[in-house]
Amino acid sequence: MTRKQRRAAFIAIGLAILALAVGLVLYAMRDNIVFFHSPSDVVEREVAPGQRIRLGGLVEAGSVETLADGAARFAVTDMVETIRVTYRGILPDLFREGQGVVAEGVLLEDGSFAADTVLAKHDETYMPSEVVDALKRTGNWQGEGAEASHAETYGQGAYP
């Protein structure tokens, strides 16, 4: 092999790997991006059932119940619209009524939401930034506790 051929071989290998990486990224981007929506978004923009989204808002006071089979049920609200959520799993340690939450999962035909991941804040003052923005848009942002500190905790489960 001449010097030129060797260089060409390396350039070819490099380009092949680059093409592999770009191809994989483009392929993975097609349907593995999850959009964030507030309950109002879900109602207004008519998010299609089965589409994977992140739903964020406040846990409606008095809405949390643990079912006999171990699943949890609660409602997420942005003070305008409210969506019922079911989650098969153990809620994060800092999940509380009246506080910010982000649930990831799919919308069901009956308009309720099946979450497989629930993210809650980590201490008294934190609220997920998406939730803050969503509340600001609906005019229900109170401002207190806006200063974020340590952060989300993860809970993950299998949705039914």
Binding site: I17, L20, A21, L24, V25, Y27, A28, M29, N32, I33, V34, F35, F36, R54, E104, E130, D133
Partner: peptide, 21 residues
């Protein structure tokens, strides 16, 4: 722009094949 999340599936589809090679 819109608020999006790139979940584990994205990384499993991109990082994993490259690493397997």
């Amino acid at each position: 722009g819109p608020k999006i999340t790139v979940g584990p599936t994205f990384f499993n589809l991109t990082f994993a094949p490259i690493f397997i090679v």
